[in-house]
Amino acid sequence: MAPTTESRVLHAPMKVEFDYTRSLGSVLSQFMSALKQHSVLGGVLADGRVVVPPPEFDPVTHLAITELVPVSDHGTVQSWSWVPEPVSQQPLDKPFAFAQVLLDGSDAPMLHAVDVDAPADISTGMRVRVRWAEETIGSIRDIACFEPAGDSETSGSASMDFGPPEVTGMISPVNLAYDYAASPEETKFFRGLSEGKLFGQRCPVCEKVYIPPRGACPVDGVPTAEEIELPDRGTLTTYCVVNVPFKGQTIPIPYVSAYVLLDGADIAFLHLILDIDAADVRMGMRVEAVWKPREEWTTSLDNIRYFRPTGEPDAEYDTYKHHL
């Protein structure tokens, strides 16, 4: 994370990445299994039309599609659009065309990429054929793309026995990159942290002190405004001990995740409690921030490594019970 400080608000890159595991069900399993064997199947609709990729349910009768038939891996471009600037994970990483290709033996075109160098090299009515991926795994990407077929003959699997489908699932990697931006109010808070300061803000209507400050007071709907510097100590209102591992977790378990109500604030925030055995942590315990070494400070709440007990007597329940 390399936040820039030039703009009005703080920005940082944020990634949302997961390899989704999809189960396919009967129709798609057969379709994907056939692709793995370099064959394309279409679904037969109740009206007799053959559609590729096969829909799972008939658009008119709504019944499950049960009959799949092989179609050719040659076809005709029905419409297309040029892709001058491919985005990540598209079939080709150089300019290409997305096209609707009507495979011989089918009645509805399928969407896929066509590998040509320029818009002038593709046209509606052009004959194209499947270029199979080097390794086929049972995925729509087993068709690497289509390519101009010239005069090559239609091939395809007029009658193949595919047996029980061997592909029943697929992995879908979804990798998205975002520019995350903080609100102006949060930006003040995070920039304060880079100087070792904790800035809250007061709501101009209800006069409650929020930390972090808010783009809208959740009670009054107006931004918090007047800046209040708060001390780095307060009362632990309530907590839990996290003892469950999960993907993306960055803190070793078990750890205490607690609401810390800084002195002078009207709302608690979540942070980590250390320097004490989890079994000894108590509601009402007085805590103080343990900061990272100054040279490691950034515009992040993790400048405070954790909170630890101050050793003061616990706060009386009545002093914080309305914060639960």
Binding site: L28, S79, W80, S81, S88, Q90, F98, Q100, L111, I140
Partner: peptide, 22 residues
Amino acid sequence: DPYTAQPLWPDTVSLAGIQARE
């Protein structure tokens, strides 16, 4: 469609282009 279309990442502009050309 997460099984047969999304893995190709067809972008919005391309889909509209196919529509326009037709």
